[in-house]
Design a protein around this nucleic acid. Structure first.
Length: 593
RNA sequence: GCGCCCGUAGCUCAGCUGGAUAGAGCGUCGGACUUCGAAUCCGCAGGUCGCAGGUUCGAAUCCUGCCGGGCGUACCA
């Protein structure tokens, strides 16, 4: 509809240019003509500012708007596109409601969970890397932001047509991994997660903490950790065995958290398997003169031509670095599954690292390197400041979820809803997840955010549970309607009465229909900008409109059976779109809560 | 020092490629439950969009310079 108006207005703008101003139609730039929304409902549904053309026509904008209005209206009327009027330099359009309500609602009700799918990225093979945990401790709040972003962006890209492969990279080697191993060997006495009744990744994490305490008092600890890493790299059987055991514990625990949060991967890479892979590529590059070797044997790349520094790619002893390994994994991933784009969801502290990585890959001649993208996200801080592992202020993912769950249970009991739901803990868990993910995705990715446990765990206001509640209310209305048998509905498939447009004349009903129609565009924007915030804002807006609407307009007790049916169909459509949007931001949908 | 990012209401955040009077939530204050679920709704108050210039019909949005904060700038990851 926007596009139609754009084209129509542009066409007449061009004839106007020729007829009245002796300006070549081609001189009228269509990209200058934007279709926006008027600030107030009563001004119309669409707004087209004509200011940009004042200069070409050497005429005041209100006059251009008036002339354009006169020319555009007859055809708009003929096509059923509504009518335009002017307000200063704006051409405001009032759409023809009775011709739009029915097609928009039936599109939602027919396409159901597919409504909102767009094709802007059809077939684009895209790898999304996210999460990337260490195997020495459980996930924390920072990972939750990363996971929420990675999962949500992946779903959004898929919904925009892309072929998405979600990948994880487990950081399972290095001296930090050896630290928890060392502490376990010293202090573990053969304990296991089972024997202690502790979630297995937390069990491993405890030994990392114990190591830190020990190392604070014993300067020899660091040395011992390094020695253990050497033994690991040499393949010492006892070390490898311990490593395997502790990694299994860590990974099993972490996977449990993934299942809990609805996060999953199509492929998992292990640093222990890929850390050597970059070496060969670097050596090849050295041969071709892309890199150079220092006297001590270290291999360097000189990035001063693009105003970056010189970076080491291989240590003087020939071992790999983080950067080296990332070169290897990128190439390996492209071999495994030739992608067009790869998106790394990694915190902003690594901005520099990715600039270097992408540039080095380009220097090595991989043409796909130009389509690598670092989706950088800001730090998650606490009201008291940064999370510090040394000060024990790191917010543990599982504990946070437990706490949210507990609060949700209390809320359900306070509201006396316990008897209404069949699965208390399951429902509470979905509410907890909804609260968490919505909160994390509400802030634009590139910004740092403050996680205030008190405020963010609230279930009131602009929150995930508010959206779930809106859906639960609609579901409740629909259940009642079905029980009453007056709906013409069977199992949630709502038929739209033929005269729906005549029934839905309330201003908020038109507002809702317009919002429903706006969902595909929100998806497009979110996909283009790799930004779930577009979806969170969109879905809150429509939920808020609906909440206000059902407070003042009765659905089941509407004036006539036809109106009841029309309003039910509208409610069903709203619920459908909210559900579709919630799915994109990993907020569970609830029928009851 | 240099590089990148951020600075919008008391607090936490939206604000599409520049477009009409800058929006939410929380918090404060005041209203609405014999009526489709009050995890809701309605209303009041709250802003020199960090500061100063510039670009133009028009700037929270683009450019430059300051100020404040964050993160980098490892043969760590």
């Amino acid at each position: 509809m926007k596009q139609q108006w754009h084209d129509l207005a542009l066409k007449h703008l061009r004839t106007l240019a020729r007829d009245e101003y002796g300006v070549e139609p081609d001189a009228v730039d269509g990209s200058e003509l934007v279709v926006s929304t008027p600030p107030e409902e009563k001004l119309g549904d669409l707004a087209l500012p004509v200011f940009p053309y004042a200069k070409v026509f050497r005429t005041a904008p209100p006059k251009i708007a008036a002339q354009l209005c006169e020319r555009v209206n007859p055809e708009a009327d003929k096509l059923g596109l509504g009518a335009a009027e002017t307000a200063g330099g704006y051409l405001n359009v009032r759409l023809q409601r009775d011709r739009l309500i029915e097609p928009i609602l039936s599109a939602v009700l027919e396409q159901q969970s597919e409504y909102g799918r767009v094709h802007t990225l059809d077939g684009v093979r895209t790898v999304v890397e996210f999460s990337c945990p260490n195997t020495n401790k459980p996930l924390h709040l920072g990972h939750l932001r990363n996971d929420a972003l990675g999962e949500s962006v992946s779903r959004i890209l898929k919904f925009a047509g892309a072929e998405v492969r979600k990948v994880n990279l487990i950081n399972d080697r290095g001296v930090h991994i050896c630290k928890s191993m060392l502490a376990y060997r010293k202090l573990g006495n053969g304990a296991t997660p089972e024997s202690e009744g502790v979630k297995s990744d937390h069990f491993v994490g405890e030994y990392y903490v114990r190591y830190s305490r020990w190392a604070a008092e014993d300067p020899d600890a660091e040395q011992q950790a390094k020695e253990m890493l050497q033994r690991w790299e040499q393949g010492d059987p006892k070390t490898v065995e311990l490593w395997l055991q502790m990694n299994r514990w860590a990974i099993e625990g972490i996977e449990e958290t993934y299942r809990r949060t609805g996060v999953s991967f199509d492929a998992v890479y292990f640093e222990s398997e890929t850390y050597k892979a970059g070496r060969e590529e670097v050596l090849k590059g050295l041969e071709r003169g892309v890199f150079y070797q220092a006297e001590d044997g270290a291999v360097w790349v000189d990035l001063s031509d693009i105003e970056l520094d010189q970076k080491v790619l291989l240590r003087s002893d020939g071992t790999s670095l983080y950067l080296t390994q990332d070169i290897g994994t990128a190439i390996q991933r492209h071999d495994d599954w030739p992608f067009e784009r790869m998106i790394y969801v990694v915190a902003s502290e690594q901005n520099y690292h990715f600039k270097v990585l992408f540039n080095v890959l380009e220097r090595l001649g991989f043409e796909w390197a130009r389509n690598l993208y670092h989706l950088s996200y800001g730090m998650v801080n606490l009201p008291e400041g940064k999370m510090k592992s040394r000060e024990g202020t790191v917010v543990d993912a599982d504990l946070l979820l437990d706490k949210l769950n507990e609060m949700a249970v209390n809320e359900i009991r306070t509201k006396a809803r316990e008897s209404e739901i069949t699965d208390l803990s399951g429902t509470a868990e979905k509410i907890a997840l909804g609260a968490l993910h919505y909160f994390l995705l509400q802030t634009s990715p590139n910004k740092d955010m403050i996680f205030d446990p008190g405020a963010s765990l609230s279930f009131n206001g602009n929150t995930g549970p508010y959206l779930q509640y809106t859906c639960a209310r609609i579901s409740s209305i629909m259940r009642k309607a079905e029980a009453g048998g007056a709906t013409g509905a069977d199992s949630g498939a709502y038929r739209l009465p033929e005269d729906a447009a005549l029934q839905l004349t309330h201003p908020e009903e038109w507002q809702l229909v317009k919002q429903l129609a706006g969902f595909p565009e929100a998806v497009m924007q979110a996909a283009e900008g790799l930004n779930p915030t577009i979806i969170t804002t969109y879905v809150y807006d429509i939920a808020k409109t609906f909440s206000g609407y059902y407070h003042e307009v009765p659905v089941l007790r509407a004036g006539s059976p036809a109106q009841v049916q029309a309003r039910l169909a509208l409610a069903a459509a709203v619920r459908q779109v909210i559900a579709n949007a919630l799915c994109l931001i990993d907020v569970p949908f609830l029928e009851r809560m």
